Computed example of a mutant assay.
Amino acid sequence: MAVDQHLSPADLHILMAEPSGVQRRIISNELYASQIQMIDEADSVATTLLQAQRNTPDLIISALHFADGSAMDLLHQLRADTQTAEIPFMLISSETRQQQLEQFKQSGVIAILPKPFKPDDLTTAIRATLDLLTQSELSLEYYEPDQLRVLIVDDSNMARKLIRRVLSGLGIENFTEAEDGSAAMTELTEKEFDLVVTDYNMPQVNGLELTEFIRSSAQHAHLPILMVSSEANQAHLQNISRAGVNALTDKPFEPDTIRQILTRILG
């Protein structure tokens, strides 16, 4: 779908991957109630990949388990194909174990909905998809968005791609990427930045340690830091806040949330 500044749910084309016919009907009814009419269905990883290649959807809504694989298998194969790599992905699952859901949070999904989900949960996820597909430049008093120099730090390539896509939709064009805090420290010693967007859980140097490094540096102490994290440990969150991040948001995140945060911390 071409980028449009006036998309509505009725404009969306959804591909629903769900092995259960009963669950497909339930989800379809909720999508129809949200004014979405263009819904394709698939019952396996293989048929989902085939349909996504034949008729690229605006969003894939997927169950966790299929007879021929998992949602993670599906997601990895989608991201490996240039034709389907950028399709937003939503997981609907009854899985509650954080360890199992963590891999999806780190992979750049647009939303994770419980099964059964509430209509409001679906509405929020659909709105996030529309935000992702819609170009709407940030309005800042002291910065031109296309001049902002942003350092994105995340050990997940897929998560970095989603963050970059969201920021690009806000009119930001100048990016440097680092795969962990150690690589980010090197970038910070060599370049100037206006904003750091970082994950928390990373090898070698995590987001907390990176934040402490930045705040203790005379050169970068003022640098705004947005941490995008799936970290649920309350003690860790308190440590992150005390270290000096300017804002903290969950994974997965809503693009409109990022817009509001950046408007606040960049003035």
Results as ranks from 00 to 15, higher is better:
82 T>P: 08
82 T>C: 02
82 T>G: 01
82 T>S: 15
82 T>Y: 06
83 Q>H: 13
83 Q>P: 00
83 Q>I: 13
83 Q>N: 14
84 T>V: 09
84 T>R: 08
84 T>N: 09
84 T>P: 06
84 T>A: 11
84 T>H: 10
85 A>M: 12
85 A>L: 01
85 A>N: 11
85 A>I: 02
85 A>W: 00
85 A>D: 12
86 E>W: 02
86 E>P: 00
86 E>H: 14
86 E>T: 14
87 I>W: 08
87 I>Y: 08
87 I>P: 06
88 P>R: 12
88 P>T: 11
88 P>Q: 11
88 P>E: 05
88 P>C: 11
89 F>T: 05
89 F>Y: 07
89 F>W: 04
89 F>I: 03
89 F>G: 06
90 M>P: 02
90 M>T: 07
90 M>L: 14
91 L>N: 09
91 L>R: 09
91 L>E: 05
92 I>Q: 10
92 I>T: 09
92 I>F: 04
92 I>M: 13
92 I>V: 15
92 I>Y: 06
92 I>E: 10
93 S>R: 03
93 S>W: 02
93 S>N: 05
94 S>W: 00
94 S>T: 09
94 S>V: 01
95 E>L: 08
95 E>N: 07
95 E>V: 11
95 E>C: 08
95 E>R: 07
95 E>G: 08
95 E>F: 03
95 E>I: 06
96 T>I: 13
96 T>M: 09
96 T>L: 07
96 T>F: 01
97 R>K: 14
97 R>F: 08
97 R>A: 15
97 R>P: 00
98 Q>C: 00
98 Q>I: 12
99 Q>K: 12
99 Q>V: 12
99 Q>G: 12
99 Q>L: 11
100 Q>F: 07
100 Q>K: 15
100 Q>I: 12
100 Q>E: 15
100 Q>P: 00
100 Q>T: 14
100 Q>N: 15
101 L>V: 08
101 L>T: 10
101 L>W: 03
101 L>E: 11
102 E>G: 01
102 E>C: 00
102 E>S: 15
102 E>H: 12
102 E>Y: 09
102 E>Q: 15
103 Q>N: 07
103 Q>T: 13
103 Q>E: 13
104 F>S: 09
104 F>H: 08
104 F>M: 10
104 F>W: 06
105 K>V: 00
105 K>I: 00
105 K>T: 06
105 K>C: 13
105 K>E: 15
106 Q>L: 13
106 Q>Y: 01
107 S>R: 02
107 S>G: 08
107 S>K: 01
107 S>I: 01
107 S>F: 02
107 S>T: 04
108 G>T: 05
108 G>I: 05
108 G>M: 02
109 V>P: 04
109 V>M: 04
109 V>I: 10
109 V>Q: 07
109 V>R: 04
110 I>T: 13
110 I>Q: 11
110 I>L: 13
110 I>E: 10
111 A>Y: 02
111 A>F: 01
111 A>V: 05
111 A>C: 04
111 A>M: 03
111 A>T: 03
111 A>L: 02
112 I>E: 07
112 I>C: 06
112 I>D: 08
112 I>F: 05
112 I>N: 07
112 I>V: 07
112 I>G: 07
113 L>I: 01
113 L>S: 03
113 L>A: 03
114 P>S: 11
114 P>W: 05
114 P>M: 05
114 P>D: 09
114 P>H: 04
